[in-house]
């Protein structure tokens, strides 16, 4: 008993020591700029590459801040936020998921549209199946993938197909746009509907086939600081950076469109 108590108090003091050491570490990292700490940014999977670059640029401008990107389907990110995940910024690939977060009172101020994106048919490089347009999505013998129905790219993709009067012969509903893209890239699927920006990001392993403007869907991307943001100042600064000329230039470099385009 006494031995156990001694051992446990030893462990306890070790833990305490570790905790103290950690907090001292945080204090020591305080830099000259006012902003500091972590900013957790939950961003749509389609923003993966662009926000990766924005993260580096923002951290370069704010030495005390560390941006942590949490990437996934906007619908999945929405659920995390609504279940109380401590998130600073939410960047969604559609307005519907942002609206649901706002309706729950989780948005601080107002969400702002920061870019738009267009859909494109994505096929493996070389397009062996000879896909030419949305009509081919009805072919039973082609392997067709879409994003799951509640993921923005899945919703928009279905809207485009419905607009073109095509009932797709779907073989898989992928959990997010990057998962879909990976399977097209691997040649396991003959065609899918992703964003123009996703096709661009593969640098040649996936070919894009344009969807005519009358069937295409313009995806509007809203961004907002969240009401429960643990680091609201840095969060606001991050959003400001995304909306700035520098941020917008990074985004257009990945194929996104500015609002005034």
């Amino acid at each position: 008993m006494t031995k156990a108590t001694t051992a446990s108090s030893r462990i306890l003091s070790l833990i305490l020591l570790a905790v103290v050491a950690c907090s001292v570490g945080v204090d020591a990292s305080t830099s000259a700029t006012d902003l500091q700490g972590e900013v957790l940014v939950s961003a749509a999977a389609s923003l993966t590459d662009a926000f990766g670059e924005i993260e580096s640029a923002f951290e370069e401008a704010n030495a005390g801040v560390e941006v942590i990107l949490n990437l996934g389907a906007s619908s999945a990110l929405r659920e995390q936020i609504l279940e109380g995940a401590p998130t600073d910024v939410f960047a969604s690939a559609d307005t519907s998921n942002m609206d649901q977060v706002a309706e729950a009172g989780e948005v601080a101020g107002q969400a702002e549209i920061f870019v738009t994106n267009l859909l494109q048919i994505a096929v493996p490089a070389g397009n062996e199946a000879g896909v030419t347009g949305l009509d081919d999505f009805a072919h039973e013998d082609l392997l067709i993938g879409l994003c799951a129905e509640d993921v923005p790219c899945g919703e928009f993709g279905r809207q485009a197909l419905a607009g073109a009067g095509v009932t797709p012969a779907i073989d898989t509903n992928e959990p997010d746009v990057r998962a879909l893209l990976t399977k097209i890239e691997a040649g396991e699927l003959d065609a899918g509907i992703t964003y123009v920006t996703d096709v661009l990001s593969t640098e040649g392993t996936v070919d894009g086939i344009d969807i005519p403007a009358e069937d295409n869907v313009v995806a509007e991307y809203p961004i907002a600081v969240l009401a429960g943001a643990p680091n609201p100042d840095a969060a606001a600064s991050f959003v400001e950076f995304v909306l700035s000329d520098q941020g917008q230039a990074i985004l257009t470099g990945y194929g996104f469109h500015r609002l005034d385009d």
Binding site: R78, E79, A148, D150, V151, D171, T172, N173, E174, P175
Partner: peptide
């Protein structure tokens, strides 16, 4: 992959439904 009736097992259905119908 994930397709109802063909490859969507219970865990996949839970995963998809979490985002659409809790």
């Amino acid at each position: 992959g994930n397709l109802q009736g063909r490859t969507q097992t219970l865990p996949l259905a839970v995963f998809v439904a979490l985002e659409s119908d809790r």
